[in-house]
Write a protein that binds this DNA or RNA. Structure first.
Length: 271
DNA sequence: CTTTTGACCTGACAGC
DNA sequence: TGCTGTCAGGTCAAAA
């Protein structure tokens, strides 16, 4: 689902509606997410004020003083803000009711997402501790990729989706970034030059930036904080465009399978 | 250590 | 109209 642009779009939509608000009531309708929603979450969170909403990788971090509500949207999750909550529909699993009457509602058909409570510094939480650099951070650069690539035989597309190289890049944006960088998804990491990594870094940043500006990509489930669909799917160069002409050279886009995931590329533009 | 595979879960769709 | 198989935006844990 949500890759970085969709999570960031959600963050930007949700934050202004919830920051400064006090949680009046937490209602868990179905606790069976990737990990169970903690049974004592209501007790911990009710009465507390949301100070800030941050994002790390694809996690949303709702800050309550020194403690954090950590939310992941998995493949099909979405978070919506309702001025007045409509009746629950299938797969609405959690409601955070705030002191001004608005409701933050978590919806997730496949339940691959997560909602956890972290006391104290969230950075040291097992889920966040080992994450690589944020794509827009200076520490994501050609040097970093080059160092990681030493002796590694994996395909570059798999490495892009591995959060040690960079976080936030999933199946859609990995294919899109590689197209823009002119690199085949199957290229072995150790064979890529420093200069090409430089181009890849810039391509990742550019595609994520444009996707955020378009409100992300909506393939099926994803919607933003007001229920709005993303628009970037109309601007994909390769993803889900198997057989369609490359926007640059007209060659039909190819689909292959890597690590049980579909990859798309232009056989002429990407070497 | 690296790399691959299976698992979690529901729904949509293609083909018989 | 069923039924079966495949696929879907993530990522952790175990196997090789």
């Amino acid at each position: 689902m949500p890759e970085l642009p969709e999570v960031e779009t959600t963050r930007r939509g949700v934050a202004p509606r919830v920051v400064g608000r006090r949680v009046k009531r937490l209602q868990v309708y179905d606790a069976r997410l990737r990990w169970p929603v903690p049974a004592d979450l209501a007790k911990r969170i009710e009465g507390r004020v949301i100070d800030r909403v941050d994002r790390r990788s694809k996690y949303l971090l709702f800050r309550f003083g020194d403690d954090t509500l950590l939310v992941h949207l998995g493949m099909t999750g979405s978070l919506r803000v309702h001025r007045k909550a409509p009746p629950r529909v299938l797969h609405d699993h959690v409601d955070l009711m705030l002191d001004d009457g608005t409701t933050l509602r978590y919806h997730d058909p496949r339940r691959f997402g997560a909602m956890l409570w972290v006391e104290g510094p969230a950075d040291s939480h097992p889920l966040l501790r080992a994450l690589g650099p944020e794509p827009f951070d200076a520490s994501f650069n050609a040097e970093h990729c080059w160092n990681l690539a030493r002796g590694r035989n994996v395909a570059v597309k798999l490495a892009l989706m591995d959060n040690r190289m960079v976080v936030g890049v999933g199946n859609i944006y990995a294919s899109e970034a590689l197209f823009r960088a002119g690199i085949r998804p199957t290229a072995r990491l150790k064979t890529i030059s420093r200069a090409r990594f430089g181009r890849l870094v810039e391509a990742v940043r550019a595609v994520l930036e444009e996707a955020i500006a378009s409100g992300g990509s909506t393939l099926r489930d994803y919607v933003g904080s007001q229920g709005e669909r993303g628009q970037f799917q109309f601007r994909h160069d390769v993803y889900a465009r198997k057989g369609d002409p490359c926007r640059v050279c007209g060659t039909p886009i190819r689909m292959i399978r890597q690590g049980q995931r579909a990859s798309f590329y232009c056989p002429r533009c990407q070497r």
